[in-house]
Design a protein around this nucleic acid. Structure first.
Lengths: 197, 197
DNA sequence: TTGTCAAGAACGGACGTTCGTTTTTGTTGT
DNA sequence: ACAACAAAAACGAACGTCCGTTCTTGACAA
């Protein structure tokens, strides 16, 4: 017999996840202490451990959240008509920036931490392998449509084009770290330049 | 008056750095313990601390090594004549792979850790800001030459093209984590497809 | 009361670093 | 050439701190 409503539980979880997101954006996964998450969330140690069994479980939650939002960025982009690749990429990058602003955290910093974690944690890497496969499929489908629409040469390989387009996304986020003046618009203009306008 | 030769000292430092590289590729910076570096290097704790004042100093050393090699990848690529962008990128990526094989570590994994560290450590980020500026200059210079050579449209912005090309490099490394079948050749074929062969 | 939630002090273990000691190496005096 | 010495290098056990987790206690709703 639950004392609190399911919504209350969900709100608490989100409260903790949000706190963790802020901490990770600032300090990375392994320099984030549970004490920091606890104080940032405004809860107590006991309460946090009531909703997440361990720090590792929290890390998993963040990693899944990031990959989930990262993919929604993609699926929304290749919806109705078939815009040229640089426009689709622009939409995806704008979405990333917007997601960060509405949550109040630098998503690209969290994403960087999540990729690094995927590199050393097989469990996280498995999540990314699964979702990465989905992402590749989505982008390859778009590439096929773009070829059919005449945006790309007929002999281009959809999967390979997909890899190149996908690659431009982390490429943007990594550079964003260092080149603060880099905007989605400027970046995709570079792609447009490569493609001959 | 030094008791051992300068070469001996350099060899010892490299011994420690190599051990740290292996540890970081496996565990990341903050899950790598000094005990692991110590045992992997075959030295003692005291000896390691004779060559590096702290773990942070070792992290700095790795970060600088990675960014240094990352940049040599670039500078060598845009040397004599002016090959098309996908060829230059291919050379850069092959170089990354080769560097990893000759050192016996997955450089792309270390690079991922280094970027994540740059995201949370201002000192490391400053290194990457400095070297990133150099990289941007090098690639922009190449882009100018590529425009002059007719590989790219005359109205393309060299700096923006540079950002897109640079971005493809981390994009490759991140995807390499998850798509093990991804090769430099296949990846740049995607770029070639985007550019219309 | 009874069962759930929250609080936060306390615990146990791990990790970075230090430091006293031993070993190696180069130098000096004969 | 050889031995004695000093200084640097290497060793590794010990220390103190920090951090993830647990557990006891109290509050509150049913």
């Amino acid at each position: 017999m639950p004392k609190v409503s399911a919504e209350h539980r969900a709100a608490r979880r989100e409260q903790i996840v949000d706190a963790m997101l802020r901490c990770v954006a600032r300090d990375g996964f392994h320099k984030t202490t549970m004490a920091a998450v606890i104080s940032e969330s405004g809860l107590s140690a006991g309460a946090v451990y009531l909703y997440f069994r361990s720090k590792d479980e929290l890390i998993r939650a963040i990693a899944e959240l990031v990959v989930g939002e990262g993919l929604s960025v993609v699926t929304d982009s290749s919806a109705d008509d078939v815009p040229p690749p640089h426009q689709v990429l622009a939409a995806a990058l704008e979405r990333v920036v917007a997601l960060g602003e509405e949550r109040g955290v630098d998503v690209h910093r969290v994403a960087l931490q999540a990729w690094a974690e995927a590199a050393r944690n097989p469990e996280i890497r498995a999540i990314y392998a699964r979702e990465g496969e989905r992402g590749r499929a989505v982008w390859a489908t778009y590439a096929e449509q773009a070829i059919a629409a005449g945006h790309l040469p007929a002999d281009a390989s959809p999967v390979r084009v997909a890899h190149a387009l996908i690659g431009l996304i982390p490429g943007f986020m990594v550079q964003r770290l260092v080149f603060e003046d880099l905007t989605p618009a400027g970046y995709v203009a570079g792609l447009a330049g490569l493609m001959g306008t």
